[in-house]
């Protein structure tokens, strides 16, 4: 094992990790707002990837340009899912936790079925995009441009989100709703509206991730599954509800995954991620930065 291999591994791991963070942050945001884990998060990612793909295939819009469109589409979609489904799941008096897990789990299955019905199970991919296939080499270390842009985007998105929550009225409304939903209602903030916007925002973030991933990943109805579990682990590792936690959790997962593959058979590299998760929660039961 040369120094070059190690540096290359860690560099790739860091880029992948930032992307994991971007995929996961929407999940964390929604959870922090209303204590709900969206088990259809992987399918949201899948839809975003299809969105970028079809905009490219039919209108020849490069994913880099269609990214805002995809994010906007996902915003509407996420808000609609809240208003049509999740809102009702939250009304449950008993077993709220299980009801929302299975409502979103059922939704995941429906979305997969719908994708198969309308998009066919064919494997798609965007063969020629501005970013796709390009790579930068610095001193023998290769950094693929799509992941590089994805990582940069993740950093910008996290920064913007942090600013948004801390500095804007709506962000403060989000925070307040999360602290005490009842009191907020008294002040005159419409809780449903805040939640719908929260779902929209969370989904728009996964939309960004999906558009970037469409440039270097294959797309098919089940594509979300492999990312969904990683996203849950990232969010829990960082601490549920903590936006910064998702950021740190993503980076940690990326680095651990890459370094596990250096010392163990690659087919076991996920074991490293899982072991680190267990280690962290056994020591800090609320994840690295969790407060709830």
């Amino acid at each position: 094992m040369t120094a070059e291999t190690i540096i290359q591994s860690l560099a790739s791991g860091l880029l992948m990790g930032l992307l994991y963070g971007l995929i996961a942050v929407g999940l964390s945001l929604i959870f922090g707002l209303m204590n709900i884990v969206n088990f259809a998060h992987g399918e949201f990612l899948m839809l975003a990837m299809y969105g970028a793909f079809f905009l490219f295939a039919f209108f020849a819009i490069d994913p880099l340009l269609s990214m805002p469109l995809v994010a906007a589409g996902m915003f509407v979609f996420g808000a609609a899912i809240y208003l049509l489904i999740v809102r009702f799941a939250m009304r449950a008096k008993t077993n709220v936790g299980m009801v929302q897990i299975f409502a979103t789990f059922g939704l995941a299955i429906v979305l997969r079925g719908l994708a198969q019905y309308f998009f066919t199970p064919d494997y798609r991919s965007i063969s020629h995009s501005w970013l796709g296939g390009k790579t930068i080499s610095i001193g023998g270390i290769f950094l693929p441009v799509p992941q590089l842009v994805g990582a940069g985007l993740a950093i910008v998105a996290f920064g913007a989100l942090y600013f948004f929550i801390k500095r804007t009225d709506f962000g403060r409304a989000l925070e307040a709703t999360r602290e005490d939903a009842g009191a907020v209602a008294l002040v005159g903030i419409d809780q449903n509206r805040v939640f719908a916007l929260g779902w929209g925002l969370g989904s728009a973030l996964v939309g960004l991730a999906g558009a970037i991933m469409a440039t270097f990943f294959y797309i098919y109805p089940d594509v979300g599954a492999s990312f969904a579990l990683i996203a849950y682990v990232v969010v829990a590792l960082g601490g549920f509800g903590s936006v910064f936690g998702a950021f740190a959790g993503g980076i940690l997962v990326g680095l651990v995954e890459a370094s596990t593959a250096l010392i163990m058979p690659p087919s076991l590299k996920a074991v490293g991620i899982y072991a680190v998760y267990l280690l962290v929660v056994f020591i800090r039961p609320r994840g690295l930065f969790g407060s709830i």
Binding site: S9, S12, G13, M16, Y20, D222, A225, S226, F227, I230, E257, A258, A261, L262, P266, K269
Partner: peptide, 8 residues
Amino acid sequence: NSPSLTAE
């Protein structure tokens, strides 16, 4: 169906 094959 790994999310990434970089290490491999």
